[in-house]
């Protein structure tokens, strides 16, 4: 049953799953982090309140987050084709994953920044810090534990979503599980993919928790 070919396929699956999860998390953060900062800064208690800007960002985030991922995946097929030239395979899956992750990450960042003590921000202002300095030297530094925790949660979420994309030919372990477990009734292969997904998830979560704990100086 588990001959060289199957093992080869599973290894490919692991590689594709990691590729999709990591690239979409990184690109998602590249978009979501600035968007989250924008939401924080423009909110009514932010550094530079701007109701119009906040409402636009808020609205876009809510719209995208209210669409179930599987539907987003299908809705975005024309856009995905435009960006990567095809609508199936692991690279193509990254596009909807990023679109789904960015607003989620933006909310994670916004709430992490909201947790930073207002007194510390006031102290920085009293030292003559500009808003830009407050964002980069105070907020992102003080909120880094929440940001790392949020990063870990997002990575776990995207791991799950990348598996979901298997149903529409997304590649990776989810794809294998659907093809073998659902279409061909080979439950053993499906179980192996599930175990692999659990293991990968454990590694991500524990690594994230470990890094967050090591970097946190608030309480010992």
């Amino acid at each position: 049953m588990f001959d060289a070919k199957v093992i080869q396929m599973l290894l490919e699956g692991i590689k594709d799953t990691l590729y999709m999860t990591i690239v979409s998390t990184v690109v998602g953060y590249a978009l979501g982090l600035p968007l989250g900062i924008l939401l924080y800064v423009s909110s009514d208690k932010g550094l530079k309140p701007n109701a119009v800007l906040y409402r636009i960002g808020d609205f876009v985030c809510n719209i995208i987050r209210s669409i179930p991922f599987l539907i987003l995946l299908i809705l975005l097929i024309p856009f995905t084709r435009l960006v990567v030239g095809q609508s199936y395979g692991s690279t193509a899956t990254i596009v909807p994953l990023v679109i789904c992750a960015a607003p989620y990450i933006a909310r994670v960042v916004e709430s992490a920044l909201n947790e930073v003590d207002g007194g510390v921000i006031e102290a920085a202002r009293a030292m003559g810090a500009s808003n830009l300095q407050i964002v980069f030297k105070v907020l992102l530094v003080e909120a880094r534990i929440s940001l790392i925790t949020g990063f870990t949660i997002t990575t776990g979420l995207l791991l799950g979503y990348s598996a979901m994309s298997g149903t529409v030919g997304g590649g990776g372990l989810g794809d294998i599980a659907v093809r073998y477990g659902y279409y061909r009734w080979q439950t053993d292969i499906m179980l192996v993919t599930v175990v692999l997904l659990i293991l990968i998830f454990q590694v991500i979560q524990n690594l994230g928790t470990w890094i967050a704990r090591r970097l946190d100086h608030r309480k010992r």
Partner: peptide, 18 residues
């Protein structure tokens, strides 16, 4: 000008991660 005026607070307001 603010950088030339020191200020301290009731809750100290130190950076917890530094």
């Amino acid at each position: 000008k603010r950088s030339e005026i020191g200020m301290i607070f009731q809750n100290f307001n130190l950076l917890e991660q530094k």
